[in-house]
Nucleic acid binder design. Structure first.
Length: 486
RNA sequence: GGCCGCGUAGCCAAGUGGCCUAAGGCGACGGAUUGCAAAUCCGUUAUUCGUGGGUUCAAAUCCCACCGCGGCCUCCA
């Protein structure tokens, strides 16, 4: 079997993958912030993590996946990381209040930041389940909440202070001393000598006054007025942004060195760089062996942004009748280290592919699909073993399908990685009216039996206009809703 | 200014030194089928890999320059 190789951001090269404790693989994925509904860009990273997990499971690994829920109310804008700006949870509450007024949201008490966080966390899990992310059905401890791990964060900060990796500044805030960690910059290439402080234009000088070095980052911010606050040796306040992942990953996985850590490319610096500094500083051990980052998603060739009107959440698309399997396939079929271009046409392409596979797999008795081996599965695994080359894997499947194989059970087995054959179970705005459509189709069948083509065509046109596609065969007429996109 | 990554047909997208006169999907076109369509099936669809140099017996694949795109340089997947 071909060895599994992954591109490791830490070394900027492909490396053979070998977990510390085979067949167990301990993987941590930077998860969602729950101030709002997650968008398709967020989900590209989550779908990637799911694909990685499913592939490793397919190749005999026992994956322990942990995805955090960031529910601490961090700050907006930039000063935020160091303490200014407006609390994101507060903004979320304002949005929810507005939504509640208009009857859209059903959060019980928008004034309770925890209720707001739980509301969006549930929305995230619902979306994740629709896209068949396994993490959505895992036990809750696999989705640790930052607000429930403040104790572990404080313990780690104390360790860092004791080890002289952190210090308490004049204003009482606790900062990590980056000069105490010579490897700082290894992940991103942004070593201290190369960092241009403030070049990103997002630093507030007034909030960095207490630091020894402008690149030192916040571990604890005392702030008794903060919306969500906890008691600590440094007073009531809240933890810095980076510390939660270090504390929760070790806590949830029970080890100090993870096999795999994933996230979006924007997390490479500073977030993951800082996690490494904190974790290694606290334990003296490597934090994660393989770092994998997904590139950003574009929409119709442009950056996705609310102002451009090309901003999509998963739930928006599903409500509009998009097949979740098509969305899942579209989000995962571009290699994770390339910018993917999300397009409506691409979504339709993906849908066609899913439907074709579903038709092919329709006759397979899922019960009879035991473990198996076949050329196509070997090609499939070989492609994915090469840094998760999903396009190559999909190509292997389609090529094999084009030869009209007798035994289609490999398709069902490979679906344990793809997760797209299952039909949508979601209610959409276009659901309902099935009985009325059945009746129309019956009228059409009667007209056809009487060779009344004009009547038959009229009904067909009517159904087509309503987004219903009819399929006529010798066995009769079947129908399905077309995936609709405006 | 620094650090990453990317640029392959109408669109999406593999391939990263010779099996490439470049997978696979969508679309388009032709045919079978059909009352006509749809669905389905069969076939066709890049001598060329952002541009210009260079290395090599051999380059989409390596090197250099340039152009374009994306990310980061204390919010972000």
């Amino acid at each position: 079997m071909t060895p599994i190789r992954f591109y490791n951001t830490l070394t900027n090269q492909l490396e053979d993958f070998a977990p510390i404790d085979p067949p167990v693989v301990r993987m941590y994925n930077c998860g969602p912030t729950v101030y709002d509904f997650a968008h398709i860009g967020n989900f590209r990273a989550f779908v990637f993590a799911d694909l990685l997990r499913r592939f490793l499971e397919f190749t005999g690994h026992e994956v322990r996946q942990v995805m955090n829920i960031t529910d601490v109310g961090h700050m907006t804008e930039d000063q935020l990381a160091d303490g200014g700006g407006q609390d994101k949870m507060e903004l979320a509450a304002q949005r929810l209040k507005a939504a509640k007024k208009s009857g859209v949201a059903d959060v019980e008490n928008p004034d309770d930041p925890f209720a707001v966080a739980r509301y969006f966390e549930k929305a995230f899990i619902d979306d994740a389940r629709a896209l068949r992310l396994k993490i959505a059905d895992d036990e809750a401890p696999r989705r640790p909440r930052a607000t429930e791990h403040v104790k572990q964060m404080i313990a780690m900060i104390e360790k860092l202070v004791a080890a002289d990796h952190a210090y308490v500044a004049g204003d009482g805030a606790v900062y990590y001393d980056v000069s105490s960690f010579p490897q700082y910059g290894k992940l991103s290439g942004n070593t201290l000598d190369k960092l241009a402080h403030g070049a990103g234009g997002r630093v507030s000088e007034t909030d960095t006054a207490g630091k020894r070095n402008p690149h030192d980052f916040l571990l604890w911010k005392p702030d008794a007025k903060h919306l969500m606050k906890w008691d600590s040796p440094w007073g009531w306040g809240y933890p810095g942004w980076h510390i939660e992942c270090s504390a929760m990953s070790m806590s949830a996985l029970g080890v100090e060195t993870l096999d795999i850590h994933t996230g979006g490319e924007d997390n490479i610096f500073p977030h993951h760089e800082c996690e490494i500094a904190q974790s290694c500083g606290a334990t003296g051990k490597a934090f994660a062996r393989y770092w994998m980052h997904t590139r950003f998603l574009m929409v119709e060739g442009e950056k996705m942004s609310k102002s451009k009107g090309n901003f999509y959440t998963v739930r928006d698309l599903l409500k509009r009748g998009v097949d979740p399997a098509a969305l899942r396939l579209e989000l995962m079929r571009t290699h994770y280290r390339s910018n993917m271009n999300f397009t409506m046409k691409g979504l339709e392409d993906a849908h066609r592919m899913v439907e074709r596979w579903r038709a092919a797999a329709a006759g397979v008795d899922a019960q009879s699909v035991a473990a198996g081996d076949s050329d196509v599965e070997r090609d499939f695994v070989a492609a994915l073993s090469d840094d998760l080359n999903i396009s190559g894997a999909l190509g292997a499947i389609n090529k094999w399908l084009n030869d009209s194989p007798d035994d289609l059970s490999p398709l069902v087995r490979m679906n344990s990685v793809l997760g797209v054959l299952e039909a949508a179970e979601l209610e959409t705005e276009t659901s309902g009216d099935d009985a009325a459509i059945d009746a129309k189709v019956q009228q059409m069948a009667d007209a056809r039996a009487a060779k009344d083509w004009a009547a038959s065509d009229a009904i067909r046109d009517e159904l087509t206009a309503a987004g219903i596609e009819v399929q006529i065969s010798k066995q009769g007429i079947t129908w399905r809703r077309k995936m609709t996109l405006d």
